[in-house]
Design a binder for these strands. Structure first.
Lengths: 241, 241
DNA sequence: GTTGATTGGGCTAGTCTCAGACCATTGATG
DNA sequence: CATCAATGGTCTGAGACTAGCCCAATCAAC
């Protein structure tokens, strides 16, 4: 971890790949994170191309690829669009083992550390701010949504809850980092079977996180988030054996 | 902060600009952060192009731009290369006011929040790990370097200290995020006059951070880092008036 | 000196990406 | 049933970017 390590950090690749590949990845993220729920449609191509900062041609190639892969159903004409058909599969233990194996050991550790740091940091930062009534309401609402969620909707609303914490800080950079962190483990999280005991446990931790944030207790919020994330992290590390 | 906010977060631009602009930015970061110190040279074009994932042609355009702007001195032949000539200027109060004004109010708040979250998260994550002797040594060495630094070298070694914390976690993603966070405030930090009282204060905080990390105390590390960063953040916010 | 390795400088043919214009389809509305 | 607004589908010319190649300059070593 000498000087050269820092060179690697700063002089990392300027572009992750070509525009097409990056776009596919981005859209896949939006779909897998449930930002656009199954049955919903993506924004119109012209708008989306502007948002993503790419040309319509490139965007269409990406959409086409996702259509071929079965994630989207594209319909023409007014009220048409690219509709999400992907529904996250119910996982079994074999899937989890495979998902962990697909990701390198180093990549898994990297992603888990990154997620821990960035989500704890977000919770702490938010707890250290003076929140408006609207912000407090949003946070409570996300928590309530999650409490009342069906197994079908659970992952999506869990993601929404976690990302809301970062978004509520008002820092787009932080929100982006948290979304990125979540993405890197989303395949793994999706492969974890949802058992009632675990869900109850997670629900209690979610309440503790929200309570600490609303109480303006950064250290408590950080601790609660840390405990929450460490649970899944330990589970996933266990599958590395 | 409704659903559409999350769409904005995930469906953000795929590319920040063209390859040339991004490369200039990246190299400028390496220079301003002191990753390549004044008098040092960048890696050979062929290597650097591979590291950055761009063609040599594009890289050369970027280097040319930085040369024209007076940051680099390019020499041909064996033992030649692109040598860093940039030396961070000694700032005055007017510079700081201007630097703060140049950045939007929102961008400043965004950057400060991001930095707080990500650096506190890194310190906590590192404190929560079992460290090898080598890692502990690296951390102590960076602290000692900083303690013995001349005003000339202070910013560079301060950056090195902060980035080391993230790098030592072993997470490339986290290191990258911290480097990014640092970059976004580096112009501001460089514009802050270095007064002896402040330096002494910072040194004490640095020692507290290291002590907490070495003691394996995540909450203490997070708190110490938070206090350390909050000092500069408050100073910068003061110049928003 | 001469040599040879290393490095920046420059060229070209080909691919990727873009902006903008125009076409085709759909379905709600009158 | 005709209309029309919204949306996906397609084409084209221009510019950005790349890979690969060879040239030019420099300087340590012999």
């Amino acid at each position: 971890m000498d000087e050269s390590a820092r060179l690697m950090t700063v002089l990392r690749p300027v572009r992750a790949g070509n525009a097409f590949e990056e776009t596919v990845e981005r859209l896949l993220q939006a779909i897998k994170l449930g930002v656009v729920a199954p049955g919903d449609k993506l924004p119109p191509e012209r708008e989306l191309a502007v948002q993503l900062g790419i040309s319509r041609v490139t965007l269409r190639e990406a959409i086409r690829a996702l259509q071929d892969a079965g994630y989207l159903d594209v319909r023409r004409g007014r009220y048409g669009g690219a509709f999400v058909t992907y529904v996250p599969p119910r996982p079994g233990p074999a899937d989890l083992r495979k998902a962990v194996a697909d990701m390198g050991t180093d990549d898994l550790a990297d992603a888990l550390t990154f997620r821990l740091a960035v989500e704890c940091g977000a919770a702490q930062a938010l707890a250290g701010m003076e929140l408006t009534g609207g912000q407090r309401d949003t946070l409570r609402r996300r928590l309530a949504d999650l409490d009342g969620a069906s197994l079908e909707d659970y992952r999506r609303l869990d993601t929404a809850f976690h990302l809301s914490i970062a978004e509520l800080t008002g820092s787009a950079l932080l929100a982006s980092a948290c979304a990125d962190a979540r993405l890197r483990v989303s395949d793994l999280l999706n492969a974890i079977p949802m058992l009632q005991v675990n869900l109850d446990h997670a629900a209690a931790q979610h309440r503790a996180i929200v309570a600490a944030i609303l109480a303006g207790d950064p250290e408590g919020a950080g601790r609660a988030m840390s405990e929450h994330l460490e649970g899944t992290a330990a589970l996933l590390r266990g599958f590395l054996s």
